[in-house]
Nucleic acid binder design. Structure first.
Lengths: 335, 335
DNA sequence: AAAACAGGTGTAATCGTTTACAACTATCAT
DNA sequence: ATGATAGTTGTAAACGATTACACCTGTTTT
């Protein structure tokens, strides 16, 4: 395989000049450029970027730490990251952690070992202290999850507010007993959403029923488990607020198997607005997150950290939106 | 940031010795090992792998070329790849090409530039000649798609046979006019499946109707478009064989909007067996692909190429399976 | 006692680039 | 003619590790 030396020899110039041509420096004579280029062609030379990487101490790669890609939600965020990254000449590596601290730590070492220039966390198992500590030493940002107390640039929606809006919507449409399906405290977003939900109930003067809060997770099967618990309740709640679309669909699917029809017998609201929310029957009423934009913005924050080392902590909140479809019973009357 | 030199100085040994400790060579005195290790600890030293990478000319990274990750199908394959890769100390990079030749070419250069040790193609826009050419010069394997005439190790299902089985199943259950929704010739798998479909019709003595073959693609919206065309037909076909689950669901969803109920009025069969096939209502009858295994095996083939340079062309066909659920009308009688 | 050997370590070359610095040429102003 | 300047190019030192080779020091073999 030809190296820069071979090209230099063939073109009758020094390696420095070849390097200049390669990097489009503007202080090379046109003839020289052409001579080098023909040498490159003739040798079918492709620069070995490992050399540059070592010299420049930059890999032009970033790492995205994602708990799972089975969920379309993260796929969209990753897509946003990747699009932004590509536009700046960066490549993206994906670490699917499965929320396993060990796997996460192993990948964090990629940053320590200079194998990537920065890390975007879509979720972390680290506590705020470790997380801040890492972010202090290496370029890192958080997306989707706003980790309480962690000093790290973050882009997400306002989960509290989103759940508040969602719950209010259910309340305004006459639903009083609302079950809440979420992931407990494993995710910060989940915790925040629960607080928004609780707030909405409180302001409506409704007494919260603890057993209506079902911490099962974000997956389809979590929804099925939640549905099983709901079916076991002495009386059915008016509505179910599931904090991910997959979960909502799990709920609907499991209820359907017991002859309970959504919208007629019970309302179900989702969260995220994945494709599936639009495709499912009934079409799912849900809270829409700007997934692509979250990813896109997250990369921009990261790039800023990589280039400027500027560590100013910033939390960017992007707008959510209630997407009204057919899975929630609406009364025309109540405002 | 501390380098190997700093550690060497601190421990009072040479860099070579530090390197030996780092790589667990067995010809270092126990005391020396300990001295080096404490120096490492005290300096909070993390080896910079860029140096090793350059010296060894290996990155321990592979690239996966995937057309999209919005489709769960590919997510599962990627997961299989990643699991296998991780077990061998490799990291995975994802290039989402969107089937854009330009983006694909840009990423192919990563291999040429030694930024990755090998490439797994889940799809390529290259023709058989270019594809073979690349695979001859760089470690590469193909997964999911068996490219006609390309000399490259491949792992996939037998698409022809799978579509044959699927169509036969529909025929055996009394469906005669079967629409076929696929991606035309953009994907080799799509072409093969169409041939399997045609074969089944022929052996059943049924005359193929060209207008029943709808080349719309693999997405949900492709399914909706196909449904629109089906609705415009003078008479409804008995069944629709959609060659991806998303497409099948698009068909079902669009038909439902016109009051046509699947299983009662028409049958629909999917392909892939994504989660959604199980979750959707009605549960989708579909052809199951061993997605995880395909990915897993693909990595093993690639590793073999990376390590042995052995170029023997092999096509590995993994078994598919008909997953019988509720979207196809079955008659108890016919065998 | 000399030779052979093994265990442990250091020296320095190497991987393929980039880049600071030096140096050369031609042009221009003085 | 001299010095300054701009444009172009080359030399060699990085970057941070790995590793071939040499070189010790003891120990064992002859």
């Amino acid at each position: 395989m030809a190296t820069i030396k071979d090209v230099a020899k063939k073109a009758g110039v020094s390696v420095a000049t070849v390097s200049r041509v390669l990097n489009h420096y503007d202080n090379v004579r046109q003839e020289t450029i052409e001579a080098v280029q023909t040498a490159i062609q003739e040798l079918d030379y492709h620069p070995n970027f490992l050399g540059r990487t070592l010299r420049r101490q930059e890999t032009m790669k970033i790492l995205v730490m994602v708990p799972t890609i089975s969920n379309q939600f993260y796929s969209r965020v990753v897509k946003g990251i990747q699009t932004a990254a590509q536009a700046h000449g960066y490549h993206t590596m994906l670490a699917i952690t499965g929320s396993d601290p060990e796997i996460e730590q192993e990948h964090i070492n990629m940053a320590r070992r200079k194998l990537v220039d920065g890390v975007i966390f879509l979720h972390t198992t680290m506590d705020a202290i470790d997380f801040s500590d890492f972010a202090e030493n290496y370029p890192a940002v958080s997306a989707c999850e706003l980790v309480e107390g962690a000093k790290i640039p973050t882009v997400s929606i306002d989960d509290y507010r989103a759940a508040l809006d969602g719950t209010r919507f259910l309340l305004h449409n006459g639903h009083k007993r609302i079950a809440f399906v979420s992931a407990g405290d494993l995710y910060d977003s989940s915790r925040r959403r629960r607080m928004g939900y609780a707030h909405a109930l409180r302001e409506a003067g409704i007494e919260a029923e603890d057993h209506l809060i079902l911490n099962e997770g974000f997956t389809f099967n979590a929804g099925k488990r939640a549905a099983a618990r709901i079916l076991a309740m002495p009386s059915l709640p008016d509505a179910v607020f599931a904090t991910s679309d997959s979960t909502a669909i799990g709920v609907i699917s499991a209820l359907a198997e017991h002859g309970i029809q959504v919208c007629r017998d019970i309302s179900v609201m989702g969260f995220d607005n994945n494709q599936i929310a639009e495709f499912y029957l009934p079409h799912l009423t849900t809270i829409s997150q700007p997934q692509f934009d979250i990813g896109h913005k997250a990369f921009e924050l990261l790039l800023n950290k990589i280039q400027n080392q500027s560590c100013e902590e910033q939390h960017i909140l992007l707008p959510h939106k209630l997407e009204c479809r057919n899975s929630v019973k609406q009364n025309g009357s109540s405002k």
